[in-house]
Design a protein around this nucleic acid. Sequence first.
RNA 1: GGAGAAAUGGCAGAGUGGUCGAAUGCGGCAGUCUUGAAAACUGUUGAGGGUCACACCUCCGGGGGUUCGAAUCCCUCUUUCUCCGCCA
Length: 423
Amino acid sequence: MLQVPFIRENKEKVIEALSKRNFAADEVINEVLSVDEERRAIQAELDNTLAESNKLSKEIGNLFKSGKKEEANELKEKTGSLKERSKELNEQLNEKTQRLSELLYNIPNVPHPSVPKGNSDEDNEVVFEEGTIPQLEAESLPHWELAKKYDIIDFELGTKISGAGFPVYKGKGARLQRALISYFLDKNTAAGYKEYQVPHLVNEASGYGTGQLPDKEGQMYHVTNDDLYLIPTAEVPVTNFFRGEIVNETDFPICCTAYTPCFRREAGSYGAHVRGLNRLHQFDKVEIVRVEHPDNSYNALNGMVEHVKGILRELKLPYRILRLCGGDLGFTSALTFDFEVYSTAQEKWLEISSVSNFETYQANRLKLRFKDENGKSQLAHTLNGSALALPRVLAGIIENYQTKDGIAIPEVLIPYTGFDIID
RNA sequence: GGAGAAAUGGCAGAGUGGUCGAAUGCGGCAGUCUUGAAAACUGUUGAGGGUCACACCUCCGGGGGUUCGAAUCCCUCUUUCUCCGCCA
């Protein structure tokens, strides 16, 4: 979340910047500032009240010690009203504090100056495009048809045991998926990201830490018996490693990668555009997460973009990079680049990676800080990106690599699959 | 799942009602010594709020309570350890 002192000092700029998201911040920002002011006034009075009663308590202690019992008892009576007052003030303080965080939790991150205005994904800005779109033969099929033809993904079977959006990968399909996971992890670790295996269920505090809660409450599967959430991305457990931590400046850059399944309820998004692998309740993803010095975070963001580019180049998939507009930008992100692979058979672009800088937004919730050269602690920057999301990469590969003889395997993957064609 | 023990600063570990934000050791930082380093010695070293800066306030796993006063007593939750049971 945003920091109150920052809002106080940059009020107009913050409102202006948030308007890029079509977020009318005027009212809520004013309330934040007034509630915070009230909060501080109450805090000051409470502090004074407590200071006074601390003083009295000490005096009483001394009086008892020196045997002046009566004087002590006299003083005791004086503490009653102070106690009452501080209780009152404490309640008021809690109220204000709670209101303040409620307000702050519901204000999205301030977009980076380079974020274009816009309402929807149609206003995203294409900043890069690479790779050649293959000329497919006339009878080329979308991946869900190919999946059936070669018996590599079984959507019906998944529906039977779980429901729609839970595919079963079979045979060479399962093997290709596993190959991709290994390949991605290898690429990431080679680039300096440390590999982790993490829990797939997280507690509420973790959900708040990275901003899934309360904003996307309905998007996560909630295991109510144990009050745990299935992770919608490895970002949640990995970034929360650092919740409440004060890291050393010399630890930067902190680079993590993890493969996990991701669970998303995707409530309300049904229809033709969710066919096949395009939108699932459970999918696999290899994620990269970085914790950075604020001065280096945009540099790091570029590095992550380059890293993902390198992977797509090796896979020889046609792709483009979009700079997300304000209207499409994630709640917690300051700047996001989406990667899309072109699916020739579907004649559309499929989002396969999203690389974002959250600046201090997550760090503030997480209380993730570092000691700067003056020994002062300040908030770090967090970033993350997919490298990569499996199903759509898989879809892109099988659609773009299809031939009349079968589906070819990208060369870099053959060492991982052990076969070079699905037929 | 049952029984018991525990949770204190970066770590280890004292502290059972006031003078405790907390002994001591290790680690970290700065200095003395040294050609340099090590050792030794000296000093320093938690976080948050608040202030121009002080003052002051809060924090000893979380929450609540008793008390003029709580790291210390009570309740509760969580976590860890030991034993038993079950089990991939």
